[in-house]
């Protein structure tokens, strides 16, 4: 099992009057090579779940095993290495560094791997090529359209060839046609072997996933496999 969550709680202000249970006892297993859509209404806890899955945040309680390792026992350096090598993140707001060019943004995860400049360059160029942005290497984020920025972000996520892709509302800031292209790209990555975890509140997009996990008020209320509708 690639991902194993058991009774995960994320509670803000526990014990207070204003206590918020963003995750309220979530148990979830995800296997290698799956394409999972996590759906739910706004405020249901989707992003909270992804942040915990992506080792960006820690749970209040509960067990999380990633590739057999107990995440709670890992040091900051080890968690950073997991984020760096195992996971590629794609965010709704792109999260590119404005001062850096497209190429430099894509190289960033490779820098933290200590890869040599020339290798970095070729890996980054390869990733930008895949998302069709070879001609925008030198551009900075504010010189690009939203769709282009998201493609840079995707290139950054895949530049290290991570086994897991986590995308939190990757189409939220895009028009539907551009959004479709992004989803198609994720499907392609999945076909090549990556595990994809996609967060969305759009049922149409969720319909492209092999498996749908629906959460509400921090609880999983539905978890089913489905036939993938043709894109």
């Amino acid at each position: 099992m690639l991902i194993h969550l058991e009774n995960i709680y994320k509670i803000y202000g526990e014990g207070l009057e204003s206590e918020v249970r963003a995750l309220d006892g979530v148990s979830l297993d995800i296997d290698n090579g799956e394409f999972v859509a996590i759906v739910g209404s706004s405020g249901s806890g989707k992003s909270t779940l992804m942040n915990i899955l992506g080792c960006l945040d820690s749970a209040t309680r509960g067990e999380y095993y990633l590739a057999g390792e107990d995440v709670r026992s890992l040091t900051d350096r080890e968690l950073s290495q997991i984020r760096n090598k195992q996971i590629g993140f794609i965010f709704q707001g792109f999260n590119l560094i404005p001062a850096l060019s497209a190429q430099e943004n894509v190289e960033l995860p490779l820098i933290y791997q200590g890869i040599s400049a020339s290798k970095r360059k070729s890996f980054a160029e390869e990733a930008l090529e895949r998302v069709g942005l070879s001609d925008r290497k030198k551009h900075r984020p504010f010189e690009m359209s939203g769709g282009q920025q998201q493609r840079v972000a995707i290139a950054r996520a895949i530049s290290t060839k991570p086994p897991i892709i986590m995308a939190d509302e990757p189409t939220g800031a895009l028009d539907s046609k551009t959004g479709q292209e992004v989803i198609a790209f994720l499907r392609q990555l999945n076909k090549e072997g990556s595990t994809v975890i996609l967060i969305t509140h759009d049922n149409g997009i969720a319909a492209t996933a092999n498996r749908i996990v629906r959460i509400s008020d921090g609880k999983i209320i539905e978890d089913r496999l489905q036939e993938v509708s043709a894109l």
Binding site: D76, S80, R83, K85, F89, L96, I97, P109, Y112, R156
Partner: peptide
């Protein structure tokens, strides 16, 4: 701060 968050998310350890 946001840049720091991005760097952390893509694998920068605290020491970096």
């Amino acid at each position: 701060t946001r840049e720091i968050g991005i760097r952390r998310a893509i694998g920068a350890p605290r020491s970096a």
